[in-house]
Nucleic acid binder design. Structure first.
Lengths: 349, 349
DNA sequence: CTGAAAGCGCTTACAG
DNA sequence: CTGAAAGCGCTTACAG
């Protein structure tokens, strides 16, 4: 790998001169500038990021602190972001936060030492503590992506997943469903549970704590489907007392549909089912699976914009962006009843 | 962040002494060793990877050069590997190779400059050129994961995806299917196509170039399903002339099943359908979707072992590992006929 | 047993 | 207009 010293020797100029002209510092003769630039190009010179980092300058590195362990896998995003960074000449560090503040704290410290320019942290509630915010502010840029506002003045993308759940509940109410249930990993889905219950109550539906079916899964894995059936079996040995079911991911929804089918329950006639994340397979299922679109590509857009605008100008005030999830209707959710037919058909459900 | 100088000042010892004892170099008094170690712990000292990298030592970094753009998304792996590396105190660079040798070459050069210790490159045929092998050998460790042997002495994991396709063909032959088709992105699936055709011919099935249905998708995206229907519509306006179909991914298989169902074709009675990658949703489909399990977790296991064993001992010879994909039977593939019933039933299919 | 010196590849005052 | 010098945080001969 060619260094400044190589250019210096080849041109007969000092290393300082080479560095200065290469960085566009004024006060050098046109001839020198041209000579240096030409030689640099000839040799294929690029500044060593390690050396720059040691001096506290940019290493063209961004750190992705992702909680990949959740019940859905946000991995499409990691890829998307890495590719965007790559196009801008940046390199991406990928780390799993494991949704643990201690892990996050340690990784952030490591990122600092490595001269990472910007960090993007994706979190569930409770992870971004005050101390972690302090650490985040030590980077040239930091973007928090999550459901709750960070403690401090950090650029924040509010990924509003509950919104899609509310829309889904609206649809169920429109279809005259009255006894909805929510199938989620309760430990990490507090905001979704809250949104679900609130919206149901507002619309006069019949819900209680028993409407929340806990699915005790730590992450997605191959035994997912049988685990789902098993926990449904345990809880509902006799009959399934709900007329609609929203699930935390499409995989869960598909497993639930299979389970219902085995027991002679028709979807959507007897029970409407709605998944989440809008997996590519959803529309190919039978019945096609209604879902909630995360709009991860919008999140990625905002991340890119926030990171690079701040890297350009550190004086920017803290910014907030909002990305809302969105209910996607498909047959499994049951037809929406138009206002006119409502009266006639409502008894039939 | 505490530095050696901090420890030096606090203990009154020279920076060289601190460095030497911290690195366990012999010849220092017990007292000094203890003092330095205690102080280092007190201060929470860790060596700066940037400085180490500049000296050509380990930065505890590994680079993942992934071709994420293919028709299946190998993203679960990136996460898995990143997590394993993290547990060993390493940090992971994630880069998309875009299946382009130029991109790979450039990224590899960047990795070098950044002092990356090991690189894991995942490729399709044609990407790992001789020149790229040369670059790979410049790292302390390099593992190639792909369908063809690399040119040179590089640790290689042969991820044998064609194997599962061959097993799937065997199953179809056992079930007396005679006119199989393969639905793939032909440009990148050369080895799978070859294995499919060879195995079919060996078993006396009726195949030709027309048995390969090209699906012109560059990457997985939301319009996948409708794109699939569309290309099937174009090619088979009147009737579907096959009795079985293997698809390059489960998403494609599900879309094909939906398309067949719309035209009154029964799965698996009229056409057996087999997917690939064994998505979590596969077993919850109706009929449950047969698939091909990639065994990515085994690949990840081997990657971890190969990388760290070589980092431990650079004198190891180049090693080869084999991970075979595996056909997973489910209803969509149609029942296997036992040898006895074959004779009786064979006419019925 | 310990430390002064040089150097990895760069940048930044500062002197000339 | 240009270059010598110091320094970022570390390691490695080498001298004492």
């Amino acid at each position: 790998m060619p260094t400044l010293l190589d250019i210096s020797r080849k041109t007969g100029l000092s290393v300082a001169t080479v560095s200065n002209t290469l960085n566009g510092r004024p006060g050098y003769s046109k001839a020198t500038q041209l000579l240096v630039q030409r030689t640099a190009k000839e040799l294929g010179y690029t500044a060593n990021p390690l050396a720059l980092g040691l001096l506290g300058k940019s290493t063209r590195t961004i750190g992705l602190l992702w909680s990949l362990g959740g019940p859905h896998s946000a991995e499409g995003m990691a890829r998307d972001i890495a590719l965007r960074m790559q196009h801008r000449g940046y390199v991406t560090h990928l780390t799993d936060s494991l949704s643990d503040p201690d892990v996050v704290g340690r990784q952030l410290a490591d990122y600092r030492r490595r001269g990472v320019d910007a960090v993007v942290i994706q979190y569930e509630s409770g992870v971004v503590t005050e101390e972690i915010c302090r650490q985040l502010k030590g980077f040239s840029a930091a973007v928090a992506v999550g459901p709750v506002e960070p403690f401090d003045e950090i650029d924040w993308i509010h990924h509003d997943m509950p919104n899609g759940y509310r829309q889904a509940v609206n649809h169920l109410a429109d279809s005259k469903r009255t006894r909805p249930a929510l199938l989620v990993h309760a430990a990490v889905a507090v905001h979704k549970i809250k949104a679900f219950l609130e919206q149901c109550r507002e619309l006069g539906m019949d819900v209680s704590d028993r409407s929340i079916i806990n699915f005790p899964a730590n992450g997605i894995h191959k035994q997912f489907a049988s685990l789902c059936r098993q926990s449904l079996d345990e809880r509902f040995s006799r009959e399934f007392p709900f007329d609609s079911l929203i699930c935390q991911c499409d995989e869960l929804a598909a497993a639930a549909i299979a389970w219902l089918r085995e027991r002679g329950v028709r979807v959507p006639e007897d029970v409407a089912v709605i998944g989440c994340n809008n997996a590519m397979l959803a529309e190919s299922l039978w019945p096609p699976l209604a879902s909630i679109e995360r709009h991860d590509e919008k999140v990625a857009d905002e991340i890119e914009k926030l990171v690079f605008s701040r890297l350009d100008d550190s004086d920017l005030p803290a910014r907030r962006r909002n990305v809302q999830s969105q209910f996607i209707w498909r047959e499994s959710a049951g037809k929406r009843l138009s206002p006119k037919t409502n009266v006639k058909l409502s008894g039939g459900l």
